[in-house]
Design a binder for these strands. Structure first.
Lengths: 211, 211
DNA sequence: CCCGGCACTTGACACTTGTCAAGATAAAAA
DNA sequence: TTTTTATCTTGACAAGTGTCAAGTGCCGGG
């Protein structure tokens, strides 16, 4: 009898796990839909109803899966993180020379700016929001740390391939590339055709200088 | 008679000018009040009524002096610009040695981060908004250009005092310092006591490297 | 003195917002 | 089958939004 009871408990626990997984999957699905609209309109102009309208659901769902709007957007930020901090890792791993790494990095950089401008302006938007809204800070700071590490992996590998070491700190390197990217993104969104090539030139010139 | 008519026209024109000046002065006064609230709450959460409540006026005034909310905020951005792009110029002019320039620059940097954090997070907020709202782009890009020039003046002077030339472009230098400042600001607002000293250390180490 | 226009306030408008309770639907359990 | 439970929709709520027309007070010129 004790054994049967245990089995029932186990089965119930398994059911619970499955439900949790389903619940989480839908949360992520909703977060992804939200990211679309956020990338289009920005944090300030995005409402739950607008998000719902660009998705397969109605506005009420969000309060079934999220405690409130902030909870939803925090979930968006966390989900965004997972996608974005490994963007350049393949290039880092496969490149066998400085030139190869440079070209791979630049190609990905240009493609990102070209195709994912909306997602990245959202990132800058949310990072600014974190300066006002404490609830975002923890996640934003963590993403920032991961991005810094990502840049550092590139720089380290680049230096290694030349038998050198990066000449500045991870923080300074990240600041440099992030600043350049941010500025290029703004210009690109302002329909400045020179934004991408100028960013590439700048990075191409900079890489041998700093590593 | 022609002369009297001319005199009347002139007087009227003078009156007009005075009125315009008064009108403009009040516009700036209102923009300044708006900047206070914007710095406190951020773009997303700031309403005209909130701005009015933190000022000596009522919410209706803003439509007497501005065509709409965007017009007001554009005016805020432009007014902000005027105040902020000359922050380090005195140090640049008066410093007679590299050390003096370094210490003056670092002191102002620390003071800015400490005392004007709210105004600067607003700047980063509005710069992000410009990625979504085309109406902001022209002014934001212009401010960015001015800030880049400001950094360049510091770097040039620093290099000059050492008989050198800056080793990187104005764009890269600005990206570097702006990125570092932005990151330090976020950490500072997240109550990270090490943010300011670490920024100062980083800049102190970096200056001789880049100029 | 009065009057016209400027500067500002007031109150209302149409609309949007986040939130949530109540109900519908469908799948699972009994 | 019936009952229960999970999921999702609907409609409503109060609060807040930008906007603007109408009105108030006031000051300077006639």
């Amino acid at each position: 009898m004790a054994r049967r009871a245990t089995a029932a408990v186990r089965r119930e626990a398994a059911v619970e796990v499955v439900r949790d997984e389903k619940f989480n999957a839908r949360r992520i699905e909703l977060a992804e839909a939200a990211l679309e609209t956020l990338g289009e309109l920005g944090f300030a102009r995005t409402s739950l109803r607008e998000i719902a309208q660009n998705s397969a659901f109605t506005h009420g769902v969000f309060h079934y899966y999220f405690s409130d709007k902030l909870d939803l957007i925090c979930c968006c930020v966390r989900h965004y993180k997972a996608k974005c901090v490994t963007r350049y890792d393949e290039v880092v791993v496969t490149a066998t020379s400085r030139d190869e790494l440079t070209e791979g990095f630049l190609a990905k950089l240009a493609a990102t700016l070209q195709n994912e401008a909306r997602m990245h302006r959202l990132w800058y938007d949310l990072r600014s929001q974190a300066m006002f809204e404490a609830a975002f800070r923890k996640d934003v700071l963590e993403i920032d740390k991961n991005l810094e590490a990502m840049i550092w992996r590139i720089a380290s590998r680049y230096a290694e391939l030349g038998g050198k070491r990066p000449v500045s700190s991870p923080a300074a390197l990240y600041a440099l590339f992030d600043g350049l990217f941010q500025s290029a993104l703004l210009k690109h969104l302002a329909a400045d055709k020179t934004a991408i090539p100028e960013l590439l030139d700048e990075v191409r010139r900079l890489l041998p200088t700093v590593c």
